[in-house]
């Protein structure tokens, strides 16, 4: 049963009830912290990308939202209901784990029968249609299928419960490009028809760039950015100027000093041109570029001091924060497909 949301509301301006909202979410493991006082929300109807390096807390967040893991402290509401791990039965929430757990000895159609028995809502016709569209043989044992085929089965099992919210942990990891495209296309078609909210984690930003309309960047267990993709694109500017130019106004995310020029990633509502020292706007050596999503994400993840998720209005705040981001700092980043895990 869907919530009756009409197709086409995707990308609507915020203001609807959040599909997921967490406040001060913290998860300690004895080997370290996965989430530290993490707060953000995803409005209903969005297709949200959850990005961040390994250990940023993406999987922990998704498992908490799915009711698998209980947080150390903090609250999380999913579809307006508080989640209590082990107690809450997530009837309208679908979850696909990053290891894509399936019963290896069971056939694909046996998985469908099992899911039908365990869910009040089950769309067998949709499951069969999707699997044939994705070229997954129904009679095959899951253990004999390729990793990509298994991912398709896992996502299909999730979709056929017609969830109002889907939580997908690295659904595309270790899939070949053909399988990626195929799965993503099928997923998008179904969720836009059902009006399902999707939260999808990934290392590979390029996969998410064209499809997602909401972005959450997790770093060290905190959300350093959480806003609609359009605002992310419109609100970030790459300023390139001569070595001696003063810092631009707005929230300077990173500053990269080269031999001749300096590059700032600036977060502000307006293009940060007027405030630059030249008086009559940009001088010949100042250039404002539109950064790629990749560059924006990398800037937030390499920032020296993670700051609040709201952009600073007054100029100069955080300007000195990114001193000395250099090539060595860049190399620490892991924004890559890390491959199949266990």
């Amino acid at each position: 049963m869907t919530d009756g949301q009409l197709p086409g509301t995707r990308g609507a301006p915020d203001g609807g009830a959040p599909a997921v909202e967490c406040r001060g979410l913290t998860k300690h493991y004895w080997r370290g912290d996965a989430l530290v006082d993490c707060s953000f929300s995803v409005p209903e109807g969005r297709l949200a990308a959850l990005v961040g390096p390994n250990g940023a807390g993406k999987s922990t967040f998704l498992r908490i939202a799915a009711g698998l893991t209980r947080p150390t402290s903090g609250d999380i509401d999913v579809l307006g209901e508080p989640i209590v791990s082990g107690r809450t039965v997530a009837t309208h929430v679908g979850y696909v784990d990053q290891v894509r757990p399936l019963y290896r000895r069971l056939r694909v159609d046996e998985h469908l029968r099992m899911a039908a028995a365990m869910n009040d809502v089950w769309d067998q016709a949709m499951a069969v249609r999707l699997l044939s569209q994705l070229e997954v043989p129904l009679r095959a044992r899951v253990g004999r299928l390729s990793v990509g085929q298994q991912a398709k089965v896992a996502v299909t099992l999730c979709l056929a419960t017609r969830p109002r919210l889907m939580l997908l942990d690295e659904p595309l990891a270790s899939l070949d490009p053909v399988a990626r495209t195929m799965l993503m296309r099928a997923l998008l078609a179904e969720v836009s028809e059902m009006g399902t909210t999707v939260v999808l984690s990934s290392h590979v930003i390029s996969d998410l760039d064209p499809v997602c309309d909401y972005l959450i960047i997790l770093r060290d267990g905190q959300a350093v950015l959480s806003e609609p993709m359009d605002d992310v694109r419109a609100g970030h500017h790459l300023v390139v100027a001569g070595r001696d130019a003063p810092s631009p106004p707005g929230d300077v995310v990173t500053e990269e000093r080269g031999a001749r020029q300096v590059r700032w990633m600036v977060r502000s509502h307006e293009p940060p041109i007027g405030g630059l020292g030249g008086g009559s706007g940009e001088g010949p050596d100042v250039e404002v570029l539109r950064p790629s999503l990749d560059e924006i994400v990398v800037a937030h993840l390499t920032r020296r001091h993670a700051s609040a998720t709201t952009p600073a209005d007054d100029g100069g705040v955080g300007a000195g924060g990114a001193d000395g981001v250099d090539g060595a700092g860049q190399r620490d980043l892991v924004i890559a497909d890390e491959g199949e895990r266990a």
Partner: peptide
């Protein structure tokens, strides 16, 4: 993780 995220407790 599959079984416990279906529609039963």
């Amino acid at each position: 993780r599959l079984a416990w995220t279906q529609g039963i407790s």
